[in-house]
Nucleic acid binder design. Structure first.
Lengths: 265, 265
DNA sequence: CGGATTCTTGAAGTCGCTCAACGAACGTGG
DNA sequence: CCACGTTCGTTGAGCGACTTCAAGAATCCG
């Protein structure tokens, strides 16, 4: 399963943020070249092998990590050992934001494949905030995005049925790959069924059955984690609340139980 | 249900943050008196009546709001109209952090009782960040806390059974009242069963049955939203993963399905 | 190739949902 | 103050979605 953590790998010189393909999604967004150079000075790049921990729950917090390439999952474990996957992170995304408050990491971060991260020592980042106001803004923006992302997942976990959850999951991945210039209809799933289940609040068996159903209905093709979205419209309808009917068609959802808002005159 | 939004109420002079009972939980934590005075200058206090919106999804973001007293719920609604309550906020807590990224509010915030908030114009807060480094740190801390809080809820929604969710909910409230100097064993539930259900990902009927069960088992007393925690130990055991047995006793949980971590030699 | 891991499929069970009816609390107006 | 309508909460019966348990197939990797 997961190997012992591997933070502190040998750095991988040279790192030139100016040349980074994902700088536009990272903290550097909108920065001047001079400012990028300043930022460059505090960053160190590391390789993290597959199944290695970038950090673990309880470890002291010193740095944030921007993903240069590769994929990570972040997960919490409860007392019983069951894990809740709180997110799948890909290039350009920032890990460790939840640790600022307590001074210790509040979740595990595990590489889903061989990956590279840019370590950003938080103390030095704070120094830069004073010199680069725009960097601070971008930082706040990314923290806020993280909050939004989690709220969206709460909606999935709290209100959706399994099919809907899975459709949302696939569409979310698709969208993020599109943002990064990859194909939105064909990509590799980097995570196991178990991870998907842990993310969506389902068992591994349920995920497997969903895969079978989506495949049989001709909505996706999937073999060996290689995914192809065949019928995006149906997935979107599903994600939006439509229910799938036995004949592979879609039906409108039952009425919501919450009363519509009354609007003052 | 919920009335039309009521932001822009008459301000309630005078607001003296220095005298605020909850300054220690708010952005002011650890600030010097001079700095508090600066902060005071940008804040305006507002009354928000019960069931009024502090802000609504899609409204342009201009200010954060610190709760001076009272209670709010924050909620998202999906396309079907079903609502996911993303949090219950009480005095000293900060609302609106999710809106920084998009420039628009990403959820609704509704007062659960007559309340007062301190409006903090974000642009002016940003100006203060340059002058009061400690304020910036505290701000980051609060954003990070928000992320942690949401991750904890994701664990509840994704991994726990109804009883466990409800126990966690009650204990969480209890803890937060304790932090504020109120009784941790006896307090008023400010939210409806519907809100609790929306928060925990359960139906109103399930919440009602949980209340009955918890009461019958002698774990809580509850009438008319007045709650008393009678058997905290049982609630904690439940929240920790114990299952309640028919005879009102508690039983150890079934083994987790996730394989224990392998530790390198 | 062989063992471990990951994934799939089936059958049975259970938890929480749906539907329905009723009771209690609240507040509004007569 | 009481009658009334409305909202809120409770309770029961039946059902359905997802889980649990179990076994087997496919894949990975040394």
């Amino acid at each position: 399963m997961c190997k012992q953590h591997g933070a502190g790998q040998a750095p991988v010189p040279p790192n030139r943020c100016a040349e980074c393909r994902f700088a536009g999604m990272c903290l550097l967004r909108g920065l001047e070249p001079v400012e990028v150079a300043l930022f460059d000075g505090i960053v160190r790049r590391h390789r993290i092998g597959r199944d290695m921990y970038l950090y673990r729950i309880g470890q002291p917090f010193t740095s944030l990590y921007a993903i240069h390439f590769g994929h990570f999952k972040t997960a919490q474990v409860d007392r019983r050992g069951a894990q809740q996957v709180t997110g799948f992170a890909m290039s350009g995304e920032l890990l460790g934001l939840d640790a600022i408050a307590g001074g210790r990491h509040a979740c595990d971060a595990v590489a889903l494949e061989d990956s590279e991260v840019c370590e950003i020592p938080f103390a030095r980042l704070q120094e830069l905030f004073g010199k680069i106001p725009h960097l601070l803004q971008q930082f706040h923006c990314m923290m806020s995005q993280e909050i939004q992302r989690e709220q969206a997942l709460m909606l999935v976990l709290g209100n959706m049925r399994a099919e809907q959850r899975f459709a949302c999951f696939l569409l979310n991945l698709s969208e993020r790959y599109a943002q990064r210039g990859y194909s939105p209809v064909s990509f590799q799933l980097r995570m196991s069924r178990d991870d998907i289940g842990g993310y969506l609040g389902l068992t591994i068996e349920s995920v497997s059955r969903l895969v079978a159903k989506f495949r049989n209905n001709g909505w996706i093709r999937l073999d060996n984690r290689k995914l192809e979205i065949v019928d995006r419209a149906s997935l979107e309808a599903l994600a939006g609340g439509m229910r799938s009917a036995p004949g592979a068609g879609l039906q409108p959802p039952p009425p919501s139980r919450t009363i519509p808002l009354r609007v003052a005159a």
